[in-house]
Structure formats: structure tokens, C-alpha cells
């Protein structure tokens, strides 16, 4: 075995010390949680109404089925959001004076929809537009609830893409122009492809948030997982279905969040 350097010996000792401290403090915290919470006066009631195994087993398949609706709403909203977000981001960067109204509209749009709570937009659009007395299927809350999500999230996506466009150095645009390419071609072939790639992790975080916010549509009608959990809660007078719903969300969002973080780390390493 090769002789360890003085520094290696020192670092090994430091590492051992750090690991020991981390292990002790983690064990202490978990022990406190496990031992102390059951001592609280209401624990037996909470356990019965939130962590009821029988109710969980009975409702979980139904919740999972309802979650398919959440995923479906997400799947048809996501491409629309990507397209509208991109269009608005480009509209905000138009330099031609003839497009000024479009640019103004894009600015107003991002300001308004980033400034409103999602639930408020869902209420206003989801209840307001069907109130016009449209014939079926145009009075469906699925359509108008999805529209509300698309409008809100496109505003955020547009801002993220725009920050990506601005992060591409002007020298890239100049290089494209110096070849005789038009401003539009420089944007389409040189700047946008780089900008969009650069903001993939940030946009992934937005889409994870979207998947969670789909549950807000339950307030205007669609029976998705949150609504379904509410139905079970009323039927069984027990809150365990909500815990089941939470677990189902986490099963999807935690891997997605980890993946977004992984991409973000990879990117910051590549650029340093």
C-alpha cells in the first residue's frame, strides 16, 4: 500500500469526524420525532384520521385512477404552454416598429398573468367564460380551466426563455449578421437554439409546478385526484385519502425535481 501523504491523512481524519457528527445528529433528530410525537395528546386521533391503513388500501387505486386525469390535463397543457411561451418571448424582442403593438401586448400579458394568483385566474376564466352560455362542449371546465393554466404558465415560461435569449452574448448575433443572415434568421438558427437549451432546467421546474397546480382545477369541476380525495374523505369521514394523494404527487415530482437539479448542476459545471 502506498504511503499516504500528510494531507491525505489529515483529510481522512476530517472526513471521519464530519461523518460521525452527521450520523449522531441525524439519529438524535429522528429519535426525537419518533418518540415525542406519539406523546402528544391528539396523536391517536391524528393517526386514525390521517394514517389509516384500511382506508388507504381501499382508496389508493381510485386515487391513482383519478391521477390519470391530472396527468392528461398536464399533457395537453404542456405543449401549448411551450408554444405560447416561446411566441410571447419572441414578441417581446421584436425590434420592427410595425410590431410595436404586439410587443406591448406581450409585455402587458406577462405582467398581468405573473401578477395574479393562479386560483383567481382559474375562477375568473373557468366560471366566467362558460357563463356566456356556450353550447356543449364549449362550456366544459376542462377547456377553460386548462386555458387558465396555459395563460398563467406561458407568462412564466416566456420570461424564462427571454432571460435565456438575453444570456446569449451579442457576439453570437453579430457573427450571424456579419455572414449576411437576416435578424430573423440569426434569432431562429443561432440565438434561440442556444437560449432554449440553456433554460431547460428552469423550465422543468416550472412544469413540475404546473403538474401540482393542475389540482387547482378541482375547484371548478373536473374530478381529478384532489377532488377524488375530497369525495373519499366525505364518504369515509377520514383524511387518509389526502395523504395518499400527496404520496402519488411526490412519486412523480421528486424524481422530476431531482432530474432538473441534475441538469442544472451539469450545466453550471459545463459553463465554469
Amino acid at each position: 500500500m502506498p504511503q499516504q501523504t500528510r494531507r491525505q491523512i489529515f483529510e481522512a481524519r476530517q472526513r471521519k469526524r464530519a461523518n460521525t457528527i452527521a450520523a449522531i445528529s441525524t439519529i438524535a433528530v429522528f429519535a426525537a420525532i419518533i418518540l415525542l410525537i406519539p406523546l402528544t395528546p391528539g396523536w391517536e386521533n391524528v393517526k386514525r384520521s390521517f394514517f389509516n391503513g384500511a382506508v388507504f388500501a381501499k382508496t389508493f387505486p381510485g386515487l391513482l385512477e383519478a391521477f390519470v386525469m391530472d396527468v392528461a390535463i398536464f399533457l395537453w397543457c404542456a405543449p401549448l404552454i411551450a408554444a405560447l411561451g416561446l411566441a410571447v418571448a419572441i414578441a417581446r424582442d421584436l425590434r420592427n416598429p410595425a410590431f410595436y403593438p404586439l410587443r406591448l401586448f406581450a409585455i402587458a400579458y406577462t405582467d398581468i398573468f405573473r401578477g395574479l394568483p393562479v386560483i383567481l385566474v382559474i375562477y375568473l376564466i373557468g366560471f366566467g367564460i362558460p357563463g356566456l352560455g356556450l353550447p356543449r362542449p364549449w362550456n366544459s371546465p376542462y377547456i377553460w380551466g386548462s386555458l387558465a393554466l396555459v395563460l398563467v404558465y406561458s407568462a412564466y415560461v416566456a420570461e424564462v426563455i427571454r432571460s435565456g435569449i438575453e444570456s446569449i452574448h451579442d457576439s453570437q448575433r453579430n457573427a450571424a449578421l456579419s455572414l449576411g443572415l437576416s435578424g430573423g434568421d440569426a434569432m431562429r438558427f443561432v440565438i434561440l437554439p442556444q437560449a432554449v437549451r440553456r433554460v431547460v432546467p428552469a423550465n422543468m421546474n416550472l412544469f413540475i409546478a404546473l403538474q401540482k397546480d393542475v389540482a387547482l382545477l378541482s375547484f371548478i369541476g373536473p374530478v381529478e385526484i384532489f377532488r377524488q380525495a375530497g369525495v373519499y374523505k366525505s364518504l369515509m369521514a377520514n383524511f387518509t385519502p389526502y395523504v395518499g394523494a400527496a404520496l402519488i404527487f411526490l412519486a412523480l415530482t421528486i424524481p422530476a425535481t431531482r432530474y432538473a437539479d441534475y441538469l442544472m448542476n451539469k450545466q453550471s459545471k459545463a459553463r465554469s
Binding site: S171, Q172, N174, A175, A176, S178, L179, G180, L181, V190
Partner: peptide, 29 residues
């Protein structure tokens, strides 16, 4: 635009398009 097509320019910091192969860099314009 038509003038720049007749007068080529090369920069100190290369300014190649990093998302394209060398060949695609040259073919784009």
C-alpha cells in the same frame, strides 16, 4: 444584409455557433 454577404468578417474570439458542427457553422449562411 446584401453588403455583409459581400464583405466577410472573422473575429478575435472566433464566435462559432457552439450548438452546430463545424460543417453546419459554415453551411448555415
Amino acid at each position: 444584409q446584401p453588403v455583409r454577404q459581400r464583405i466577410g468578417m472573422v473575429f478575435q474570439s472566433y464566435n462559432l455557433f457552439p450548438h452546430m458542427t463545424a460543417l453546419d457553422n459554415a453551411i448555415l449562411a
